[in-house]
Nucleic acid binder design. Structure first.
Lengths: 141, 141
DNA sequence: CTCTGTGCAAACGATTTGCATGATG
DNA sequence: CATCATGCAAATCGTTTGCACAGAG
């Protein structure tokens, strides 16, 4: 009889990572919240579930996972870095400027304007967007 | 004989803001650096010019100016908020992932791909980009 | 058993707050 | 002189580090 693996345990296998409590809870939280989470948010979630996860351990865990590419850092709200699964297809985000709602946006449409239209058809109101390019400047190549 | 106003003094007039040392130096620094600056960067610049500007005062000043729309917050590098003049035409940025080089990008081309090409022709190497939409979610409207 | 993960306390840097004082229009 | 701006010290918050110990494979 096969044992049912949680999503988190699958990811650990896939990346040959030790199956630890911190990892299991971290992945669990990401799956359930269905949006990028910041470290303070992870900690709040764990606390509300009465799960004792050390702050330092979590910072180190997230760092490891980002370096491996399992997680991806998402910088949207000023002074707040969130993390999402790196396996998600390359996508962008919609963030509510009033509450902390953030959701993935698939840029299937060919233009920013059309993507905004598609978003508005889903019920949100888009006021502005930000587009940043990253890479190496001429000096640093 | 007309008195020559600095850019900063012009902005103060335009927004009916008191002409203070903090404001003058802040605008001056922005004009000279030609790129978004973070508060620690402003402070370093002032210190290197032997200008004593209090940290608290600067934080409050920047907050005021952002609320008025004179400045705009720019969130590019994780954990680093920079500020640029809000009067700049709506544009995006290129950030070097190795040094702290940031420059404005005019999205004159119609697509992200073509904007990237145009950037590369200017000598930088684009590895990836981020696109975020902001507004109000259905609950918050 | 060995390597990796964990926990705690302390350090750090950026940002915020309270309160009393100073300067601008 | 009425606002608005300033300075300082202390508090707060997110993040990092050193070191000793524990757990997974």
């Amino acid at each position: 009889m096969k044992t049912q693996l949680t999503e988190g345990e699958k990811i650990c296998k896939e990346w040959s990572l030790r199956n630890t409590k911190t990892r299991r809870l971290l992945f669990q939280a990401l799956f359930e919240s269905r949006r990028p989470l910041s470290i303070p948010e992870f900690l709040d979630i764990f606390a509300s579930e009465d799960e004792r996860i050390n702050k330092t351990t979590l910072y180190r865990e997230v760092e490891t996972l980002v370096n491996l590419g399992v997680l991806r850092a998402v910088q949207i709200t000023p002074r707040k870095v969130s993390y999402e699964l790196g396996s998600h297809e390359h996508h962008h985000h919609f963030a509510c400027t009033k509450c902390d709602f953030i959701t993935g946006v698939t840029f299937s449409e060919k233009s920013i304007e059309r993507t905004e239209k598609a978003l508005e058809e889903q019920g949100v109101q888009v006021t502005h967007h930000a587009l940043e390019f990253f890479g190496l400047c001429s000096r640093c190549q």
